[in-house]
Design a protein around this nucleic acid. Structure first.
Lengths: 125, 125
DNA sequence: CCTCTATGTTGACGTTCTTCGATACAAGAC
DNA sequence: GTCTTGTATCGAAGAACGTCAACATAGAGG
C-alpha cells in the first residue's frame, strides 16, 4: 500500500546533504527535494491532518477519524493523505476494513533541524 | 518598501498559539497561517534564495548577487523575493541603486521548532 | 533636463493544485 | 454469491502558481 514515498529528507548518509538552510547556499538538487516536503506542508488541510496524526497518542489514526474532522469530501481528504505519503511524511496500513496512518519517525525532526541549524561556521578557528 | 509581511509566525505571545505540530491537533486558523509560511518554502527557487540570504555572513545580500545565480529572468527572481517577503520570512531595503535582502530574525527558528516540538505531554505526572 | 543601470510591476500563458461527483476496490456480514 | 461500509482512484472544473516579455520606477551621473 505504500512504497512510493520520496525517501528524500532522508538520513543524510554521508553528510553530503543539507547541513541546514543557513549553513551554506543550497544546491539545486537538494532544494528540489526539500521543496517537495515543504510544499506538502504548505496547505492548511494537510498541516491539520499531519498534526492530528502526529499528536495522537499511539501514533496511529484511522482515516475514519480524520475525514469527519473537515468540511471536505472524503476523496479530497484521501487525496491530501496521499500527497503527505508521497512527500515521505507519513505512511499507512490497511487493517481489516480500516486504514491507519502514522508519521514516519524522524522526518519532522530532520525538516525542523534543517530550518534551525546554526549560522555559517563563523570565524571561530 | 516593506510592511506587507504576514507578521504571522509571530512571537507566540500568550502561548495561545502553536506549541508544536505534534503537541495537539492544529486549529484551522493556525494551520492557515503556518501553511502560508511553509508554502513559501515549497519552491526550489525560493528555498535557494532563502538559503543564499541566510547563509551570508553579514546577513545581507544584494539582489544583484541573487539574480545571476539562477537561469531565470530577473522579474521571476523579483517575484519569488516578494513572496518570501509576504510570507514574513525576509525583508529588504533600498540603498542607493541596490536593494538588499535579509532573513527576519527568529522566524526560521520558530518554524523549525514547530516541527520538532515534543510529543503530546505524556503521562509524566 | 536626459540617459543609464538596478529593481519592481503588469499582463499573459501554460502548468499545477484543490476540490468534487462518480466510480472502483477491499473486506466484513449475510 | 449479494449487500453494506470504508477507502482509493478517476475525470473534470476552477483557482492558484511559475515564468516571461514589456513596461514602470528609483536613483546615480552627466
Amino acid at each position: 500500500m505504500s512504497k512510493q514515498e520520496l525517501e528524500v529528507i532522508g538520513q543524510d548518509a554521508d553528510g553530503a546533504c543539507c547541513r541546514g538552510l543557513a549553513s551554506a547556499p543550497l544546491a539545486e538538487d537538494q532544494a528540489v527535494e526539500l521543496a517537495k516536503a515543504f510544499k506538502a506542508l504548505g496547505d492548511p488541510v494537510r498541516l491539520r491532518l499531519l498534526s492530528m496524526i502526529a499528536s495522537r497518542e499511539g501514533g496511529e489514526v484511522c482515516v475514519c477519524e480524520l475525514t469527519p474532522a473537515f468540511e471536505l469530501s472524503q476523496p479530497t481528504i484521501s487525496h491530501h493523505l496521499k500527497l503527505l505519503r508521497q512527500a515521505g511524511l507519513i505512511d499507512c496500513e490497511r487493517r481489516g476494513t480500516w486504514v491507519y496512518y502514522w508519521v514516519l519517525p524522524g522526518v519532522l525532526d530532520r525538516l525542523g533541524a534543517f530550518l534551525t541549524t546554526p549560522e555559517p561556521v563563523g570565524v571561530t578557528t
